[in-house]
Design a protein around this nucleic acid. Structure first.
Lengths: 151, 151
DNA sequence: TATTGTTATACTCTATAACTATA
DNA sequence: TATAGTTATAGAGTATAACAATA
């Protein structure tokens, strides 16, 4: 198999994996951008919208609507920073933590279904190869520019 | 490594591979949708726009602008079908064939660069694992719904 | 003057629906 | 009437630039 074909397969499967995950998220009433934002807030609470926007590689203005929706849904709380009243500190509510846990469950189910065609040993091998590839191209694990706000 | 993490890596690397390929295409003045369309026409010439739209999983109306651009650039020729004058038959010109060859060259360079972090044996292993995964999920090789018109 | 969050605006990409010409 | 290609319109998603409050 030529390297170009492997690259094609990778792009194809990546798009498939992202779409399949988005489909699962839709079933629990959320989207990849929202899931990525919840994860970013949960991972490191009490940051400003600017900070989170920078981490996610998106425009700060974009967070406004997303955070508005999460706040209305009672999943995220904005609290003013008393030392610098221009900043908000973003934090998950209890309901937000629970939603994040649901998303984690969906992600695990998605991963299992995605790798179902492979045996345990092959999965480990694939994971190792993809890790080395991601590492070789400077793709930090955990965070992710590229897809702007998706998980 | 958990399956969810492998799924995440796959989506991440897939997006990276697609973006990197798009970046290379931009250097030769084209885009993934255009490259995909050229490939579809070259692979099986003299088909109608409807047929090609169906293969690519896109709306027929979308082809109009793309084919217009390719025709103006002298890469594709529309010829009326004399038996049914509603249909066009699409075919690459000599310049179109040459452009498609350039795209192929770019794709090979992209593949090499993408897999550079792996040795020859690992590349073959990765190709095999990804093929089995794609096969297991019914992703036909060669064509590709998912990314609508990209190569 | 600089920065945070916000709003307004515009741009890209794509699909859906209406239109024409042929059948 | 049905279909191929076309045009017009609209929607999703996102970025850029202008704005108000605060520093």
């Amino acid at each position: 198999m030529h390297p170009a074909q492997v690259g094609f397969l990778l792009a194809r499967l990546g798009a498939y994996a992202a779409a399949a995950f988005a489909g699962r998220l839709e079933l629990i009433g959320t989207t990849p951008p929202v899931a990525g934002l919840l994860r970013a807030i949960g991972r490191q609470p009490d940051r400003s919208q600017q900070e989170i926007a920078a981490e996610l590689g998106t425009a700060p203005s974009r967070l406004v609507g997303l955070v508005d929706g999460l706040e209305t849904a009672g999943l995220v709380r904005r609290t003013r920073n008393d030392r610098d009243r221009r900043l908000y500190a973003l934090r998950l509510t209890a309901a937000g933590e629970q939603r994040l846990a649901e998303i984690g469950k969906v992600a695990r189910e998605h991963g299992r279904a995605l790798l179902a065609p492979l045996g345990a040993e092959d999965r480990a091998q694939l994971g190792g190869l993809l890790s080395r590839l991601a590492d070789g191209h400077g793709l930090t694990p955990g965070v992710h520019p590229g897809h702007r706000l998706s998980p």
